[in-house]
């Protein structure tokens, strides 16, 4: 659906025309029907990549294809929906007028436009606000109308730039559900974000972009597999005296509340020994939780790495 090869982008900024490199040869692919999360810290070049793909900026090097066609072929835009980062809309339009304008730009017929707009406003929970001017919309409502306009043409490929930023937990869940719903309908979704827990839940594959370079790409499982268990947290009760102080020595940290103690062990072996000791001393284990590396750890590691 999306393919880029050696995509480069350079800007000249300021009076001295200082060179700023935003993308250093990005090569990646998004396959049909998948949810692809494009991760990276602020300023990594995510938005620049999306702008190039959407024809808002011209790359200074490399090439990209959408649905097998080069970017210069704007006819593919018919099958694409796009939500920019922190979207601003025409303040003076009402939600219904804005949806109508979006539909017109796709050359949709009057009836089709009205039906589709109603359907989408319903889906994003804004039917009640359809005659309200957009300047009266809250941030969450703006994000939702943004998603609705991106879907007006029933696109095959949906590109979302930071769809969850600035939303409260309820709003984030709604956006997540919308994305998963689109995936169930066979759409391809490509979105950029820096909200990692959402990515683990909804993405089939992710790419991590740092300072204009793609540092990692693959399924969430692939990327964090092979990473060892980082620590084990064990909660137990009814252990006292010498046995308790031995356990405390083995653990990297303990918290005691009444007769219950929660101990954290840095390696699984120590946790195994501790478990036996609790049994032998007649105590009871309440919970035993291994903590594995998460996408967040991988992300922080990649961001922290020097070139």
């Amino acid at each position: 659906m999306i393919r880029t090869e050696g995509l480069k982008m350079e800007f000249r900024v300021g009076f001295l025309r200082k060179r700023v490199v935003a993308l250093k040869g990005l090569t990646m692919e998004v396959k049909k029907g998948e949810v692809f999360g494009f991760l990276g810290p602020n300023g990594a070049g995510k938005t620049t990549t999306l702008k190039i793909l959407m024809g808002l900026a011209h790359p200074t090097g490399g090439a990209a294809w959408l649905m097998g066609r080069p970017l210069s072929d704007s006819s593919v835009k018919r099958k694409i929906g796009f939500l920019p980062e922190q979207p601003y809309f025409y303040d003076y339009l009402t939600a219904a007028e804005f949806m109508d304008l979006s539909g017109r730009l796709f050359g949709m017929r009057n009836k089709e436009r009205a039906a589709r707009a109603g359907e989408l406003l319903d889906m994003v929970g804004l039917s009640h606000a359809k005659n309200l001017q957009l300047r009266k919309f809250s941030k969450g409502m703006q994000q939702r109308i943004g998603i609705a306009q991106a879907l007006i043409n029933d696109p095959e490929l949906v590109v979302l730039d930071e769809p969850m930023s600035g939303l409260d937990p309820v709003g984030r869940k709604q956006v997540r559900d919308i994305i998963l719903g689109l995936k169930d309908n066979g759409k391809t979704i490509f979105f950029s974000t820096h909200i990692l827990p959402d990515v683990e839940v909804i993405c089939d594959r992710v790419g991590i972009l740092v300072r204009g370079e793609l540092r990692a790409m693959g399924t969430v499982g692939e990327l964090i597999s092979g990473t060892r268990v980082k620590s084990v947290e064990m909660t137990f009760k009814d252990v006292s005296g010498e046995n308790l102080s031995r356990l405390e020595n083995m653990a990297s940290g303990t918290v005691t509340r009444g007769s219950e103690t929660t101990a954290t062990f840095n390696d699984p072996e120590a946790a195994g020994k501790a478990k036996r000791l609790v049994f032998d001393s007649g105590g009871e284990i309440i919970s035993l939780i291994p903590h594995k590396s998460s996408l967040e750890d991988l992300f922080m590691e990649e961001v922290g790495k020097k070139k």
Partner: peptide, 14 residues
């Protein structure tokens, strides 16, 4: 300035 152009130009319009 208001970036409304992103919404428009990303649609099939020249």
């Amino acid at each position: 300035e208001k970036k409304t152009i992103y919404i428009i130009i990303s649609k099939p319009i020249k």
